[in-house]
Simulated assay, not measured.
Amino acid sequence: MDRSGPPAAVVFDIGGVLGGSEAGGAVLAAEVGVESSSFTAAYWRHRDGYDLGSDAEEYWSRVGADVGRTFTPAEMRRLDRRDAQRWAGLAPGIAALLARVAAAGVRMGLLSNAPHSLATEVRGSAWGAMFPTKVFSCEAGVAKPRPGAYAAVEDELGLSGADLLFFDDRPVNVAAARERGWWAHRWQGPRQCLADLAAAGVHVPGRAGPDADGPVF
Rank of each mutant, 00 (worst) to 15 (best):
R146F: 13
H46N: 09
F39T: 12
G189K: 14
D196L: 08
G181Q: 03
V153M: 04
A149H: 14
G93R: 08
A88E: 02
E22H: 14
G161A: 04
P190H: 08
H46V: 06
V216L: 14
R81D: 14
D48F: 10
G214A: 06
V202L: 08
E57F: 10
N113K: 00
R47Q: 13
I14R: 01
A198T: 14
G128T: 03
A152D: 00
A198G: 15
S38R: 11
G93H: 03
A184I: 01
R78C: 11
A8C: 08
L194G: 01
E121T: 09
R100S: 13
D66M: 08
V27K: 15
V142L: 05
D169T: 06
F217W: 15
F166M: 01
S61E: 10
A29W: 00
A102H: 10
A99N: 13
G53W: 05
A65K: 01
G49V: 04
V142R: 00
A212P: 02
R170Q: 13
C138T: 04
V122H: 03
R3E: 02
L159T: 01
G148V: 00
Y50V: 05
S137E: 01
A26H: 13
A149F: 11
V172Q: 15
L90T: 12
A42K: 02
A143Y: 04
A143N: 03
H185Q: 12
P6L: 02
V32Q: 03
D2V: 09
V153N: 00
V204H: 05
W44V: 04
D211P: 09
H46I: 03
G25C: 10
A208Y: 10
G209A: 10
F166Y: 09
A152S: 08
V216G: 14
L165T: 05
H185S: 11
A99F: 05
D169G: 05
A103E: 15
G209N: 07
L18D: 05
S61D: 11
R123S: 09
P147A: 13
R180Y: 04
Y50Q: 06
R100A: 13
F167S: 05
S37A: 14
G25N: 14
S112F: 05
G206V: 07
S4P: 12
K144R: 15
P132F: 07
G161K: 01
G209H: 03
E139A: 02
A23D: 15
E179P: 01
G209S: 06
E179M: 01
W60R: 02
E156H: 12
H185G: 09
R146P: 01
D2C: 09
E75Q: 15
R45M: 14
R191L: 10
L118F: 05
L164W: 00
L52A: 01
P190D: 07
V106H: 13
S137I: 02
A195F: 01
G25T: 12
L28Q: 10
G20S: 05
A26T: 11
A114V: 01
E156N: 08
V34I: 12
D213C: 08
